[in-house]
């Protein structure tokens, strides 16, 4: 199991972790309601250049903090996505952030942490892909934005307005990474803005439903003040293109998630992914998720209803073929 505490070093230089008495719902469960979003600079995988280093130095932290300030300032000053997107991919948790980074505005500098990867296990901070999955990653990366785009099956599941997968839902979604958590007696419901991904998690002892779904079949329980959610029964959708091979839906997938509210503003979200079809061993990421003001809204995403990009991509593919 991963380290249970994220080593936080925010811009004030304070440790964010302290003893914290969680508020309660009227029926006595720990209260994790609100709008939550991952807004930190830690990449999922440790960049190659950092090799065996689990933590950044103080100087490195200061540099990243400066870049974050400058990027936020540049956006406030109206610089467009191309200028803002010049940060390297490995420094950003957002893949291909040169594309439409206008949409990806965090609105403020992201929080800087000392961790060099969200992945805490394996200790090298890397996804433990099987050889086949690694080959799929290479192919997927090479074709992204390049094609061929001959039918609606060629765009990835996100571009088709389906989902980017359950493992990514709580902490990504560059075009709408907010999550609303609503608690009602016997349920924790999570609504993710992008693709309107939704999980209604029954709490306390129910068996799995046994029906395979895109976002699986979740059951949850409280252990002390930590919400533990186990999810199985994912549909096998590995025949589709995915933005991330590591978050694809496979019938061998099993997720275990821990939601621990460590202070008023932070949930420490621990994700353990097991999928022998994609990985040689389970892996775990520890991800800080931040509370946004109560006035924050989740807006209607209506992706499929306005997916003009898909018809445009396909008609462009036909035009290109006609010109050949």
């Amino acid at each position: 199991m991963a380290s249970s505490v994220i080593v936080a070093q925010n811009l004030m230089g304070e440790d964010a972790i302290s003893s914290w008495e969680s508020p309660r719902t009227p029926w006595g469960d720990p209260d994790i309601e609100g709008i939550w979003r991952y807004e930190a600079t830690i990449p999922l995988e440790r960049p190659d250049r950092l090799q065996d280093r689990a933590f950044l130095t103080d100087e490195e932290v200061a540099t990243i903090a400066l870049v974050e300030e400058e990027r936020a300032m540049a956006r406030l000053n109206g610089l467009d996505g191309v200028d803002v997107g010049k940060i390297t991919l490995e420094e950003s948790p957002i893949r291909y952030n040169e594309y439409n980074s206008f949409w990806q505005d965090h609105g403020r500098p992201r929080q800087v942490y000392r961790q060099t990867s969200l992945i805490s296990d394996p200790p090298n901070g890397k996804l433990p892909y099987t050889d086949d999955a690694r080959e799929a990653v290479v192919r997927s990366t090479a074709r992204y934005g390049v094609g061929p785009y001959e039918s609606y099956l060629d765009p990835d599941t996100g571009e088709r307005c389906l989902t980017d997968g359950a493992a990514i839902m709580m902490w990504q979604g560059p075009n709408g990474g907010h999550n609303r958590i609503v608690q009602s007696p016997g349920y924790v419901t999570i609504v993710h803005e992008e693709y309107q991904d939704r999980r209604i998690i029954p709490i306390g002892g129910q068996p799995h439903r046994g029906v395979k779904q895109w976002l699986g079949d979740s059951v949850g329980r409280w252990e002390d003040d930590v919400l533990i959610v186990e999810t199985i029964n994912f549909l096998d959708k590995t025949n589709y293109e995915w933005a991330n091979i590591w978050s694809r839906s496979s019938d061998a997938l099993r997720l275990v998630e821990r939601f621990e509210r460590v202070d008023p503003q932070t949930i420490e979200y621990t994700l353990t992914v097991e999928d022998p079809k994609t990985f040689t061993r389970p892996w775990t990421a520890v991800i800080p998720i931040f509370k946004l003001p109560d006035s924050t809204h989740i807006f209607e995403y209506a992706c499929h209803e306005g997916n003009y990009a898909l018809s445009n991509i396909l008609s462009a593919g036909r035009a290109e073929a006609a010109n050949d």
Partner: peptide, 20 residues
């Protein structure tokens, strides 16, 4: 449960628009 019908209508909506 899920009724993710986007996947069920793609061929209807986009089948004729692509090369294949």
């Amino acid at each position: 449960l899920e009724y993710e019908c986007v996947e069920f209508v793609e061929q209807l909506m986009y089948g004729q628009l692509g090369l294949n």
